[in-house]
Write a protein that binds this DNA or RNA. Structure first.
Lengths: 343, 343
DNA sequence: ATTTTGTGTTAAAACGTTTTAGTGTTATAT
DNA sequence: ATATAACACTAAAACGTTTTAACACAAAAT
């Protein structure tokens, strides 16, 4: 419980009457490895506890070149998906003796870049990134410089990094098939206008399912820009005459799109699921409390966070060059009223 | 853009042909203060830029005893109020050259304690805490040890710390008066069973307004424990026969209580505002998207975060003992349909 | 001509840790 | 008796920074 560190190895050494080297060895659990006597070991341990010794992280870091700090760059912390992800990452790291420092990029590559710099300056040992659009070059740079890094939620196919993400193709294929099984045929897919792989994969899942059902003519993908998607969505949904059944069901491919979509449908007084069925992403209180409750794809956030931390630290602490792997986690569909056909 | 620091003062010194002391002085902008020649200054600056020098934070920290790290302990990062607060704090700190490391206490004092220890071990210069129930002793301890600290959202009246919080009395008084002005008389107040001052202050605001309106007999405060408030709320609301107008309006005094309250009212098929009017706290998408939209107290989150950082850093960097102040920020009522009487 | 003052620079120490190479002692093997 | 091994420990260096005291060397003052 101390911010100003007082007790040092030397203090203990003097109190016990040994060298600080010995104290260091004992306190690092290397007593037998270095063949330290039992007596000395006991005394040092006791004194350390008595004086409530806390190692000075700076000195240790300076000496070892390691900070035991992990950087985390999240896209948008006010999105519950990322908030929970951040919490899990913090927990998992803490269990392994690492501390997390983080920042929000707000999906802006310039912010991302600034943040990475800040984190680098703070001497983080490795970094967990939710990359944003147009950050491929930045990430590739770091990759070339061999920095320990793991991408979460999204990744770049051309950069050979560690990554953990959802099986996005399967997720959206499953969703589409669920809607098809409910009897919906005119299913629209709403995505961000983005080259990020997780977007294209999600679209692909939808495509595949539609094609397999022989409905390639019904494929209808709506792409909205990241900035002013609310207005555009409003306009598009109005034009599409949802009430005339030009669209029977909508899949929103991210959490924020779903929430905005609900705002818009609300505003246009379009009823769910009578006028249009809705399937969303990532859950949250809004989904459960909305009338009707909204179906959604649940990502294994906890697992995602823990996995990211584990493989990053493995890489940091193993000597052999790690095998680069892309982990794909399984989605789960939470079915509520919004996607079930009323007859 | 480097995690492994390579270029050191010595490298620059050698390249230019001066001592590393001189380089340090120049790079810290103390050239004239130490009377360094123009020529040398120019060359050093140029070389530093050329080699992309980044100071080693550990070495600097070891030498100075300062880390430029701020600790942040948030109650629950998945609550949007705290998520946004965390983001603002991170931003404000970063602008001032500080980095934030954080953790969630989940409202558990043991977690809080562990986290504080971790942060202390990381050598943070100061700490921003959203204290939780039963953490008074812990906080008092730190206060006695004169650690730089600021409490946010909540504070303890008996501990003389810096703090930033909402003017909770006014907030709830305003809410109550708004409901009274709508013609509601049987107004219930829902709070956590908590000794935390922000709870008692919120209750006090409600009390004052009711008393001033001559309705002390209608005062009805419901307190729920932090853990299983959902079930209890369900039970209580059922018993209170809301449909018989035993309760005309409900004030929920936190964000999580509001959200849970909506779940419960939903479950009991109680209509808002026909059966009962509702006023919530802190906002969020749920509030806007619920039918009807929920009125709520908006806290100036951004201001709260920035203020906390500012006064903490002021304290860290000023030599004179800081004047301890408790900052109280003004609430704002966002009125939607849920609290407006239908006639 | 010598002391003083000023200017520009550096050597050295310090922060607290970890590790390597080495020291002195005692026990065992030759 | 001497070389060798095993044991228990320490001295010292290194990590990169900042700051203090000191040092040359010139110019100005005596």
């Amino acid at each position: 419980m101390a911010f100003k560190k007082k007790v040092s190895l030397k203090d203990i050494a003097q109190a016990v009457g040994v060298s600080s080297a010995l104290v260091s060895m004992v306190l690092n659990g290397k007593a037998k490895q270095y063949g330290i006597g039992e007596e000395a070991t006991r005394k040092v341990l006791a004194k350390a506890k008595e004086l409530n010794y806390q190692p000075n992280i700076m000195a240790r870091g300076l000496r070892s070149g390691k900070s035991h700090l992990l950087g985390l760059v999240v896209a948008d912390i006010s999105n519950p998906f990322f908030a929970i992800l951040a919490r899990e990452i913090e927990r998992a790291a803490s269990e392994k003796g690492y501390t997390v420092i983080y920042g929000s990029s707000d999906e802006k590559p310039e912010h991302l870049s600034t943040l990475m710099n800040t984190l680098a300056n703070q001497g983080v040992d490795g970094i967990i990134v939710i990359p944003c659009e147009n950050s491929e070059e930045l990430i590739a740079d770091l990759y070339l410089q061999k920095y320990a890094m793991v991408l979460v939620d999204r990744y770049f196919p051309d950069i050979n990094t560690l990554s953990v993400s959802l099986d996005n193709v399967k997720a959206c294929k499953d969703v589409t098939q669920h809607l098809l099984s409910q009897g919906f045929r005119k299913i629209s897919f709403v995505a961000y206008e983005s080259k990020l792989l997780h977007t294209t994969e999600r679209i692909r899942g939808y495509h595949e399912a539609m094609q397999e059902a022989g409905l390639e003519n019904n494929i209808h993908v709506l792409k909205f820009p990241q900035d002013k998607y609310h207005e555009m969505m409003l306009q598009v949904f109005e034009e599409n005459k949802i009430n005339n059944k030009n669209i029977e069901a909508i899949i929103f491919s991210t959490n924020s799109l779903t929430v905005q979509g609900l705002y818009v449908l609300n505003q246009l007084k379009i009823r769910i699921p009578e006028d249009v069925a809705v399937f969303g992403f990532d859950g949250g209180d809004v989904f459960d409390l909305y009338s009707p409750a909204i179906s959604y794809v649940r990502q294994p956030v906890e697992e995602m966070g823990r996995k990211a931390v584990t493989i990053l630290i493995d890489q940091l602490e193993s000597d052999e060059p790690q095998v680069i792997r892309r982990y794909k986690l399984k989605p789960e569909l939470v079915i509520a009223e919004s996607s079930v056909k009323k007859q």
